[in-house]
Structures are given as C-alpha cells and as structure tokens.
Nucleic acid binder design. Structure first.
Lengths: 246, 246
DNA sequence: GGTGGAAACGTGACTGAGTCACAGACGGCC
DNA sequence: GGCCGTCTGTGACTCAGTCACGTTTCCACC
C-alpha cells in the first residue's frame, strides 16, 4: 500500500521541529543532528528551513513513493533509512541507492525541480524520522539561494554517478563479482558479517534468490563464507576481493 | 583516440558565431537555429551566450569524452548527433541517450555543476557542429539566471527519467522485447525501415551481435522483417508491437 | 511444551541470453 | 577479376534466470 502523503507526526498543525522524546530530537537539538550542510548554512536559511520543514515519521516496510507518483516535498532523513529501487514486472528489484541519516533523495530533487513524476519506487527500510520541505518552498530556495543550489548540484553529481556505476555493473559484470562486491562493501565487524537474507541480496542486485543461493553455497563449500539465516559471514575476504575484481 | 579538448573551428582566436558556409550557420542565422530555449531568452542572455560560446566542429567517430575525464564546457549541438553510452570491460556497450540538433548533454551539465568527472563515454555519431560554453560561464549563468536554471532542471528531469527507463528495461525485459521496441521507435518511412547494422543494434541495447542476429533471423523466418546489410525493414509492425509489449 | 504457519533456504530441470570459434557473403577498390 | 574489410550466419558451450517443489528454522499462540 502506498502512503500517498508522508504521514505527519502527531497530527498537530504546527510545524515546529520537535519529535517526541524517544526520537531524540527536541527543539534546538535539531541543529546538531541536521546534515552538516545545514549547520554550515547562514542563520537566515536555517530559520526558513525550520519554518517550512514538517517533521515526518514513517515505519519500516512502508512504500513511500511508487513509479509515476508526484513528489510533494523534499525529504531529509534524520534517523533510519530509505531505499530507492527499480521493480520489473516479474517482481525482480534493483536498489538504486539509499537515503541515510543526514541525507536526502536525489530523485525527489530532480522530480521537484524538473516538474516530473517519480521514476522509481521508495520504501522505508528502517523506521525513519525526518523533515519534509514542501516542493514549492524547495523550488524557491534552490532558485534563490546559492547555498541550496550548491547542495543540490553536489547531490546530483554524486548520486548520478553512483546510479550509472550500478547500471554498468548490472549490465556487464558477472553475478559472482557483483555479489562479492556487495558483501565486501557492506559487511562489517570482526569477523566480517553481512546481515541480509538471500532474497534481499538478490533484490539489491537485480538477480534471483536461487542464483544468489547457488553462488553462496559454492563459496561455502570452498570455505570462503559461512551461512546462517539472514547472515553471511566472510571467512576469506581476500579471495572474495579477487572475484569482485572480476 | 580521445579528443582531450573539443577542437576549435578554423583555429581563429575570435569567438564570433560564424561557421564556414557549408555549415549553414553565418552570423545571425544562428538565432533561428539555436534551441527554442535560447530564442525565448531575454536579449541580455543571448548577448552573453554569443560572447561566451565557442563554435566547435567534430567529425564522425571521434571519441569526445571518456569515463573519468573532466568536462570543460557545456555543449549545444546545432547539426549532427552525439551518442552517450556505457562500455563494459568486454567491449559491450549500452547507449544512454543521444544529443541531437538543438539539444545538449545532461551528463555534462551534471558534471560541471556537481564538479565531477564524466561517468560515461561520448562519441560523435554524425559530423557535429555546435557551440561550447566554458564550464565557469555555464556555472555562473545557472547560478544567476532563472532562465538557465529552468533549462537545466528541465533537462535533468527529462533525461534522468529516460536513463532510468533504459536501466529498467535492460535489467528486466527480454531482449526480443527490447529489440522490437528499439526498431519500432527508430524505423521510419514507408515501408518502415531502420538503417543499422546488427552490431550497432546490439550496442544500443547492451546485448551481443549474435543474439540480435538470431532474433532477427527468427523474425525473418516468420516474415515479420526483411534483412539486408545494415538495413532492417519492418514488415509486420503489429506483431512486433505485441512482442515489444513483452 | 507443542503446534501451525510464515519466512528463509536448498535443489533439479529447463529456458533464455551471452561467448567463442569459425565460415560465408557482400561491397568497394585497385 | 581479385583482394580486403565489414557484415552476417551458425553450432556448441557456459552463465544466469525461471519454475516447481521440498526442507529447515523461527516464532506466535494455545
């Protein structure tokens, strides 16, 4: 089910920047938690931001935007993450990028500024609280404030490049290499562990669960990984790096 | 071989907007040939454009930008076309989009404004003459002129969407559907004809020549197309449209 | 503690798509 | 005509995705 409008926190009509206590954001605490980009902003812009931004809170699994929907506002994530992805008609998926704490969504920006509909899907990956700036305000700011322009252009350049890299990799690289790369990029801790189901990993890469399963089992047989429900442990990162290099 | 810098017309140092006669662009003729977008511009901006833009001329086959190169300027095509594409390490290619008469290149804009390197390849597909606005001037204009901002944002929204559509199609759709779609979108005249080699068609779609060959021969056997060296004639567009729909 | 159902994983058989190697076939040109 | 480069055709093979089904693990609830 699609949340046609980002749900408002609490339901009050005021747009003050206050989350409930467990959200960790109260009054001016916000300044420290906001993206670096905002903390560098002239006070005037911070004021405008506070006046226009609406707190939003969304829960895991919620589908925030579907292909063809209009973008009502520019969202800035403060806690939690959002996943932006493509879906094929057979249900296969490819993750384009994530919006994490302190970040915002390029495609939203491009939609709002270019007056177009959202060309992908977006879902809440872990409970998210953030701030939503209505499209008209955002458009005006980007038009008038060099600060916001720089922010948007930086965002565009960065994400555009990463989406194209993903495109290239999906189109040309063998699945083994892509799986290895994803695991090496994502796993952390000691021992190296990636907490993800095989289905979800397939959805990252635009592949199928069975394919991922077979690759991982091959690697388990040679002792390069160990597997558990929703957990992949990298036992031999060096070999995996070899495979990742193609 | 990479043309590290867009070659200058004639070699003169003046930046006046004059091509040699066969180029068809002389003095103020340019105004009528420039993108609609410029003809709508306030005279002030047209003046600045004329002062800053350098005529460039490039010939077919030339590789204009390679992955990782810096974008020196924003190019506007007046005659001829430029193809922007991804290349895999095995040599397979996927066309991202074309820059045609009156158009300009999104990725260049994104690179210049986001201060990044070009994330793809660009080659001249048919002899091209156009105008090159140096990056600093372009950056300044977009910063200060609402007119240019609108132009850039429109461009971004439009091309971004089409590149994502291409991504989705490459990742999820069967080759048959993609070949059919490409042919239907491209073929023109009566009878419907697409003039392209099978290798080039494979390069459009990120597939392999042999694959394209087999599909086309299957269709020839059923009488839906007829084939010649570098020519594909669509005999049964209705059936092809069925296949294109997947 | 048992149990039923959902989610996650495992596997074989099949089809579609890309790769490799090589063989014509056509077109331009000396 | 004869030569060379480009374009096309084809078989045998491998890799990746699909389909169908079975098994294991976890967890909520009685």
């Amino acid at each position: 089910m699609v949340a046609a409008e980002w749900s408002r926190l609490g339901g009050g009509e005021t747009a003050e920047l206050a989350f409930s206590a467990d959200g960790g954001i109260l009054g001016r605490t916000i300044m420290t938690d906001l993206p670096k980009m905002l903390s560098d902003a002239p006070p005037r812009l911070r004021g405008a931001f506070e006046a226009a931004a609406r707190p939003v809170r969304l829960s895991q699994g919620q589908l925030v935007l579907a292909p063809g929907q209009a973008c009502e506002g520019m969202a800035f994530a403060m806690h939690g993450t959002l996943r932006v992805y493509l879906v094929g008609m057979d249900g296969r998926e490819i993750t384009l990028y994530r919006v994490r704490e302190g970040e915002s969504c390029v495609l939203s920006a491009a939609c709002i500024l270019g007056n177009r509909r959202f060309p992908a899907s977006a879902e809440i990956e872990s409970d998210l609280s953030g701030l939503l700036v209505p499209a008209p305000a955002f458009r005006e700011w980007v038009g008038q404030e060099p600060f916001w322009r720089e922010y948007v252009f930086g965002l565009l350049g960065e994400r555009l490049a990463s989406v194209l890299a993903q495109f290239e990799s999906t189109a040309f690289d063998p699945v083994e290499a892509r799986i290895a790369r994803w695991l090496l990029d994502t796993a952390h801790g000691d021992p190296l562990i990636a907490s993800i189901t095989q289905q979800a990993l397939a959805n990252e890469l635009g592949s199928a669960r069975e394919v991922v399963n077979r690759v991982l089992n091959r690697w388990r047989a040679t002792g390069w990984v160990s597997l558990d429900r929703g957990v992949i442990q990298l036992l031999d990162p060096v070999r995996l790096r070899n495979i990742a290099a193609r």
